[in-house]
């Protein structure tokens, strides 16, 4: 971008129109701008007024490489299987620049690490990933060129591993680094700036990282099975003709709701299901496939618990006799 010519034209109106119209970005004058200084003098010599101009000294403003990354999330983002984290990249330098965008899901202190599915530019700015509308970027890809001060809405798409426990927290970092180069402030990339000028790393180091936090929202079902044996002799030995009462406790933990939960259990070999012994929460269920929630047969029992919210607990029992 060569703003020098434009700047020269703007100088004259600027002298007339105040305040001074300066092509200044937040980071300062645009890279490539010319600073041209000319002094002129009038004086009297031999009773005549004379004028003289100095030579014009001209400088070209070099490019400052700076960037800022900010999470646009106000708190932890709830996620069950996938999530989209919103970030804003801003070119805080004074010239057009592209930035390498890298999402890192493996941040120290994470309870689990998400998997980065990809990045996207939130083309329509709605804060939601719209497949086919938003521009997909691979993780580690380069952004479009951003003018000085120009922001870019970037979405980081992640998936949550199945093993991630409910309510676990995980940070995902997004780093933007100037492709011209990054490094210690003051690092020089000769000739790499706008219109052949130099590029110099600014205070940000020309790279910046921000993070956003995921929290796992999911319900987890835990089944706990126990057995109580009653032998025909009033004892608890597993001998033929002894009755085993199986107790299955289904517990939902975490957050959210599980839907369509069914408990199935096969009748163990060497035992015989005792018809009419199936219960749910202490209430008897018929063995037939009918209006109630349970079915019992010689091969298996099944109880439809339906939708259960986190915190719910259901107990199923049935009896078999050892053959």
């Amino acid at each position: 971008m060569n703003t020098g010519a434009r700047h020269l034209k703007s100088l004259l109106p600027a002298l007339l129109a105040l305040p001074f119209a300066v092509p200044a970005a937040a980071a300062g004058v645009a890279a490539g701008s010319l600073i041209e200084n000319t002094a002129s003098a009038t004086y009297t010599a031999n009773a005549a007024t004379q004028t003289v101009d100095s030579n014009t000294v001209a400088l070209k403003v070099d490019e400052l490489l700076d960037v800022a990354v900010a999470s646009q999330e106000s708190g932890a983002v709830s996620a069950t299987t996938t999530a989209v984290l919103r970030f804003k990249i801003t070119n805080t330098g004074n010239g057009p620049e592209t930035f390498t965008l890298t999402a890192n899901p493996a941040v120290g202190g994470n309870a689990f690490n998400a998997t980065v599915l990809g990045l996207a530019i939130d083309t329509n700015g709605n804060g939601v990933y719209d497949a086919g509308i938003d521009t997909d970027l691979a993780n580690g890809a380069v952004s479009p060129s951003l003018a000085a001060d120009e922001p870019l809405a970037v979405l980081v798409r992640v998936s949550i591993p199945a093993a991630a426990p409910p309510n676990a927290l995980s940070k995902v970092e997004l780093t933007a680094a100037a492709t011209t180069g990054a490094g210690a402030p003051g690092t020089l990339f000769a000739g790499a700036g706008v219109s052949g000028g130099d590029a110099v790393v600014g205070a940000s180091g020309a790279t910046h990282t921000a993070d956003a936090t995921l929290t796992v929202t999911k319900a987890v079902v835990t089944l706990t099975k126990s057995a109580t044996v009653a032998d025909p002799f009033g004892g608890a030995r597993p001998v033929p003709a002894a009755t085993i009462t199986y107790r299955i406790v289904a517990e939902v933990t975490g957050t959210g709701t599980v839907t369509g939960l069914t408990v199935n259990d096969a009748i163990p070999a060497g035992t015989t299901y005792q018809p009419g012994t199936l219960t749910l929460e202490g209430a008897a269920l018929t063995d037939a496939a009918d209006a109630d929630a349970g079915q019992g047969s010689a091969s298996a029992i099944a109880v439809q618990l339906g939708d259960l919210a986190a915190g719910a607990q259901r107990t199923v029992t049935f009896k078999v006799k050892i053959n």
Binding site: L15, V22, V29, L34, N37, A41, Y43, A45, Q50, V61
Partner: peptide, 22 residues
């Protein structure tokens, strides 16, 4: 500035518009 002539000059006024970027 330099007076390269052989006579004094008077009422010497130097005006310098500031370049807009500074």
């Amino acid at each position: 500035y330099r007076n390269a002539g052989d006579k004094p000059v008077t009422d010497f006024v130097v005006t310098n518009p500031l370049p807009a970027p500074v």
